[in-house]
Amino acid sequence: MIAFLAAVIERLAGYPQGLVDRIGHPVMWIGSLIGFLDTRLNRPEKSFEIRKIRGILALAIVILVTLIVALGISELLDLLPFGWVIEVLIASSLLAQKGLRDAVMGVADALRSDGLDGARHAVGQIVGRDTAGLDEAEISRAAIETLAENASDGVIAPLLYLALFGLPGAAVYKAINTCDSMIGHRSERHEAFGWAAAKLDDIVNIIPARLTALLFAGGARFLDGADPQAALRTAQRDAQHHASPNAGWPEAALAGALDFGLGGPRSYRGERVDLPGMGDGRRALGADDIATAISLYDRAMLLALGGVAVWALLRWML
Rank of each mutant, 00 (worst) to 15 (best):
D78Q: 13
A291V: 15
E191H: 11
H242G: 07
V88W: 00
I61P: 01
A70G: 08
R186F: 07
H185R: 12
D289L: 05
R120F: 04
A196N: 04
R272Y: 02
L76T: 14
A220E: 09
A287G: 14
P250Q: 03
I183G: 02
N42W: 13
K52H: 08
R189V: 14
W316E: 06
A58P: 02
R282A: 15
L303G: 13
R101G: 00
L80S: 05
V88N: 02
I156V: 15
I9H: 00
S32V: 13
V310K: 04
L296W: 04
L160A: 11
G218P: 00
L12K: 02
G225W: 08
G279V: 12
E271Q: 14
G55S: 10
L305V: 07
W249F: 14
P26I: 15
A108G: 09
A198K: 08
P168N: 13
T39I: 03
T39V: 14
W84V: 15
I203H: 06
L164N: 05
R40E: 15
A13M: 03
G31H: 08
A70K: 10
I53Y: 11
M301V: 03
A230Y: 00
R101E: 01
A132I: 12
A209M: 03
M301P: 08
R22D: 09
T66M: 04
G281V: 13
A243M: 06
D109P: 03
S187A: 11
G154Q: 01
